[in-house]
Amino acid sequence: MKYMLLIYMGENAMSDGEREQCYKDSTALCHELAENGKFIAASPLQPVATATSVRVREGKRLITDGPFAETREQLGGYFIVDVADADEAAAIASRIPAAKKGTVEVRAILEIPNLPRKLETVGASS
């Protein structure tokens, strides 16, 4: 069963040094997951100031600056893991360094057939 772990954290919650360490620790976690065949993908996102939203209103496309919803903490990155169940997903979520400062939302992935390449075969950094 695949899960998406969405990392929400205040963008100023970490110092530059803490962020560097966070990337290092997260990368190590990714490698550990990969060794156990549980890793699908992971990546940080650029700050929310770079976000653009697209909507359709009254049949017209509307492009706006900014994220879909203004929240106290912002989506800063994600992991996608392949694990036995929701409990294991939550256990991994709690090992994500950013869980100490922010919140990780665990969402089950709805597996549908016929996608171009199976998620398993796709690397996060290629």
Binding site: L45, Q46, G123
Partner: peptide, 11 residues
């Protein structure tokens, strides 16, 4: 959201 590409992640 533009993805931040960081090196060293596993495939």
């Amino acid at each position: 959201r533009p993805v931040m590409e960081i090196p060293g992640l596993p495939n």
